[in-house]
């Protein structure tokens, strides 16, 4: 269970989060929507431990572990996964090597046996097939020369292989055409189960037609100003953020 209480954070002198309260129970998928600059990406980075953000108050824990005290790799081993809005290119690092190193690093941290190369390749190929990714994407350097859609698929592939308990998807739908959106969504839906929860950050309701959330939250000016069921996303799509932001003010 992800529990966030009164979380406030700044980048330099600029306050970005102004007291976020949020609970995502196990097995649930929650969507976070909101206008540009609301703090959506900041929230995802703070939960995954990206340097450069100052948490000025509040708490964030996952399954009782204080996330804010942990290194990014410790959070990953705990089962927290961030699908990047802008996946990072790693020239000189092969995708297969990257995936296997990450998987085995997490397994080691959890005291589990490492996966040997043949077992890993079998797993990776099966997941790639589900995501309609060609085999040669294992040989290429991580995200180098990938199209926007390929990069997002590669994020979902990592998620499928690492099998996190909490996935934070930061605008995974941006840059995807409708077919890729469907494939990526199926990849996320395949993870659904009692031990998987997700925070889906998006601008658009469209993604939520494919990944149907249990709850939808509206983040504005660093606070959650409204929460509701999936129907809230449709309301936003119909009326825009302006009305809701004005109501809350």
């Amino acid at each position: 269970m992800l529990e966030i209480k009164g979380l406030t954070a700044a980048i330099g002198d600029k306050q970005i989060l102004n007291g976020v309260d949020l609970v995502v129970p196990p097995g649930e998928i929650h969507a976070i929507m909101g206008p540009n600059g609301a703090g959506k990406s900041t929230l995802s980075y703070i939960l995954s431990g990206r340097p450069g953000y100052e948490v000025t108050g509040g708490e964030a824990s996952f399954n009782g572990h204080d996330l804010l005290e942990m290194e990014p790799e410790e959070r990953a081993a705990l089962g927290v996964f961030l699908a990047f809005q802008y996946p990072v290119e790693l020239p000189g690092v092969g995708n297969a090597n990257f995936l296997r190193t990450a998987l085995n690093a997490q397994r080691r941290a959890r005291g589990e046996a490492e996966l040997d190369a043949p077992s890993f390749l079998k797993l990776a190929r099966a997941e790639m097939k589900r995501l309609s990714m060609p085999d040669d994407m294992l040989k290429r350097n991580v995200n180098v020369g990938f199209s926007g859609g390929e990069k997002k698929r590669n994020e979902v592939l990592q998620m499928a292989i690492l099998k996190p308990k909490l996935a934070i998807l930061d605008e995974t739908d941006s840059g995807l055409d409708i077919d890729a959106l469907r494939i990526v969504s199926e990849g996320v839906n395949a993870q659904r189960g009692p031990n998987f929860s997700a925070l889906v950050i998006t601008h658009y309701q469209r993604l939520l037609d494919y990944i149907v959330p249990d709850r939808v939250h509206v983040l504005s000016a660093g606070r959650i100003i409204r929460s509701g069921g999936p129907e809230l996303a449709h309301e936003l799509e119909a009326h825009g953020y302006a009305g809701i932001v004005a109501d809350a003010a």
């Binding site: 431990g49 290194e71 990014p72 790799e73 990953a76 990072v88 190193t101």
Partner: peptide
Amino acid sequence: FYLRSRGVAH
């Protein structure tokens, strides 16, 4: 950070 977020130690 990308590598660390995937569980690879610093």
